[in-house]
Computed example of a mutant assay.
Amino acid sequence: MNNQQDQQGELKGKIALVTGGTKGIGKAVTARLLEAGAKVIVTARNQPEEANPAYHFIPADLSQPAEVVKVTTEIQSLFGGVDILINNMGANTFPGGGFSTLTDDHWNQAMQINLLSSVRLDRALLPKMLEQGSGVIIHISSTSGQFPIWESTMAYTAAKAALNAYSKSLSQEVAAKGVRVITVSPGLNNTEAMSVFLEDLAQKAGLTVEGITQRLFERVGGVPLGRMADPAETAELIYFLVTPRASYITGANYAIDGGNFPVI
């Protein structure tokens, strides 16, 4: 049996939760985990556009604490817990234009969606991982967490930076107990959410989507590979990190950005 065949069943017997798993990067991660034989649970605020009997779907808005309780209660009742937790939920839906456009509600929403939803899920599902002495938690952050764009991502950037620090701290606490915690920071991905974001920016700037995309590339210092990532490319990194082949990796923050990140 060759390596590719081995990897097709690499996660057989594992239970995984993917938040925000019906679109974009989350959808691609879900597909990759299913391909590897995992039993996958997916959460999202809205029902998927097409029903997929291959995974167990739980509708939930994880920015609400009660919804996190609902999800984790159902998981514990039906599955006992999870072996893999992909905290992919996140959004940059807050006004651009700098500090004066952001209200307390905007800041609170940014933290609830991009930080506290992950904190609450970890707190509920991590004890079972610790009990069994194994597990992997992936926090999906963003290169914005280390490279802010004040015009359009101020609240989002602050929340992702906080997620980075929290993830690192958690990794140090639980590593000796068999649980790995890793951060993945995607750059620009060609997702539905990115399309909406670019259309909104283009409308406000009086430019075409192509024009605003080029301006965004320039604003982030250029992308050496010259394009956005396909979500499946980002999902492949996330998939590798949850496999036994990444068993010595924890506490790291992996940027996957086409060479964009401007520091060593």
Results as ranks from 00 to 15, higher is better:
1 M>C: 03
4 Q>P: 00
4 Q>W: 11
13 G>M: 11
15 I>L: 13
19 T>N: 03
23 K>T: 05
23 K>R: 15
24 G>Q: 08
27 K>M: 05
30 T>G: 03
30 T>C: 02
31 A>E: 12
32 R>E: 06
37 G>H: 10
48 P>R: 14
50 E>S: 04
57 F>G: 12
60 A>Q: 08
62 L>G: 02
63 S>T: 02
67 E>W: 06
69 V>P: 00
72 T>H: 08
76 Q>P: 00
77 S>G: 10
81 G>K: 09
84 I>G: 02
88 N>P: 12
92 N>Y: 13
95 P>S: 14
99 F>N: 02
99 F>P: 04
101 T>L: 09
103 T>V: 00
104 D>Y: 04
105 D>L: 14
107 W>V: 13
108 N>Y: 04
108 N>T: 02
112 Q>R: 04
114 N>M: 03
114 N>A: 02
117 S>W: 06
122 D>P: 00
123 R>W: 01
124 A>I: 04
125 L>F: 01
132 Q>K: 04
133 G>Y: 00
134 S>C: 05
138 I>T: 04
140 I>T: 15
141 S>D: 08
141 S>Q: 06
143 T>W: 05
145 G>P: 06
148 P>A: 11
151 E>G: 13
151 E>W: 08
153 T>C: 11
155 A>I: 03
157 T>S: 15
161 A>K: 08
162 A>G: 06
174 V>I: 11
176 A>R: 15
176 A>K: 14
181 V>L: 15
184 V>I: 14
188 L>V: 05
192 E>M: 13
197 F>H: 14
197 F>A: 12
199 E>D: 09
201 L>T: 00
203 Q>I: 01
209 V>H: 05
210 E>D: 15
213 T>I: 06
215 R>Y: 07
215 R>V: 12
222 G>E: 10
230 D>P: 05
231 P>S: 03
239 Y>E: 02
240 F>Q: 01
241 L>C: 10
241 L>W: 14
242 V>P: 01
243 T>H: 10
245 R>W: 04
245 R>Y: 08
245 R>P: 03
246 A>H: 10
252 A>I: 05
253 N>Q: 11
255 A>R: 07
255 A>I: 10
257 D>V: 08
257 D>T: 12
259 G>T: 02
